[in-house]
Design a protein around this nucleic acid. Structure first.
Lengths: 221, 221
DNA sequence: TATCTGCGGAACATAAGGTTCCGTTCTGTT
DNA sequence: AACAGAACGGAACCTTATGTTCCGCAGATA
């Protein structure tokens, strides 16, 4: 029978095209990717938009996540882990600290990690795990920043909080599709990196934000 | 009678504290200011939030504007007129073009004009008047920018659209109250201005956005 | 005193969106 | 071949949010 034929394919293919389990596993990924795209474009988007984009029904979402907030938390958690991984990669780079720092920022902008973390914060009640990851991410970023600063590659007066704020500003750049947006963000990232690299420039006006001010954004609006 | 006394005050004081007309005129201003504060903080805020902030009832709003969109259009229109006035002031400055340019940007950031124009665009159906003002504003900004560029004060490759995008990014900076936000925006404006002033730096990556891409943001989302 | 203007805010109507639920399809088993 | 169950689609349900209307009141005006 046809079914049998399909089953045969299943057992010989790493990612079989049929089979309930395989379909479900594929949906796991499709749904997460759709959720990422939708919520990055609009953190307040309805859950039905995610289902539509994923090409599945709403029940496929509720089978995997108890509610909307859980999905948002999952995305945010993944974003934080990505950020942590990028920061660790930067720290593992023993070469030129400035080069490692710029590459770190480029990768964060490239993967639009910031849109997954801070931009989603405030749309759900944060959990203890999320808070831990967030703290860890901040610490790693601080180490990347400090190493760069100690190498004398940064404009005096800059702080690691400035880096976070710059990610904020770049995440606000939105024009056309994701590819276009990414390209334009890199344009302004290049501009900002040049400004951050002016090691003999004067101090910037006003005190930089402090970490406490930043963390307040995690509370539900 | 007490009423007579008040009337007497009315005729001798420029802004009498009582009198129906005077109260109404004051409300005109109070309501607009409340609407500005509320919608700048959140373009999707409910109209009741505006009334609450103004300390008036909802009917006081509906007496002045047929509906929510009309109020938003009024704010946006005022913002465009402000922008036009600032650009004209910059053009009238016959001194150092770079100084005039930086002061122009500082004033726009200071008055948070960008939050009134582009940030509100898309929340209402644009009218012909609005479109005309928008075009006029762009033309004036272009002249300010061109004059600065011709003076050799700008990094090669920059365009006037970059200026608009930078306003966008600065408007995304939000931390604490309006005063704190303003101060922090000026910090990053200073950073960006330094980067824009690197007249001998290499070109930035990627093509700058074009005007058409920008104007697409005026359509309702 | 009669009338009018401006206004407060409850009431109303509607839209939006999160969640539930039922019927259907396909899978693996007896 | 019939059956139990998993995964799912999507309509229905229900609550919330919010734009708008409306009614009654207070102060001003004549």
């Amino acid at each position: 029978m046809f079914r049998r034929y399909i089953e045969g394919v299943e057992t010989t293919t790493p990612t079989p095209m049929s089979g309930r389990k395989a379909q479900a596993a594929r949906n796991d990924h499709v749904i997460l990717e759709a959720a990422r795209a939708v919520f990055v474009a609009d953190p307040g988007a309805p859950i039905s938009a995610v289902a539509e984009r994923a090409g599945v029904g709403i029940s496929a979402l509720y089978r995997r996540y108890p509610g909307k907030e859980d999905l948002l938390r999952k995305l945010c958690s993944d974003g934080l882990k990505l950020y942590i991984a990028e920061a660790e990669m930067a720290l593992a780079d023993e070469g030129d600290p400035w080069a490692a720092f710029t590459e770190f920022m480029r990768r964060v902008v490239d993967a639009d990690i910031h849109s997954l973390t801070i931009n989603l914060a405030g749309t759900f009640a944060p959990t203890e795990d999320l808070h831990r990851d967030s703290t860890h991410a901040s610490e790693l970023a601080e180490r990347v920043f400090e190493r760069t600063r100690e190498a004398g590659a940064l404009r005096p007066g800059l702080t690691v909080v400035d880096v976070a704020m710059i990610f904020d500003q770049l995440a606000a750049v939105r024009l056309g599709d994701e590819a276009r947006t990414s390209r334009i963000r890199h344009r302004y990232l290049a501009l900002l990196l040049d400004a951050m690299h002016l090691t003999s420039a004067g101090p910037l006006p006003g005190p930089a934000p402090d970490a406490e001010e930043l963390n307040r954004r995690w509370t539900v609006r």
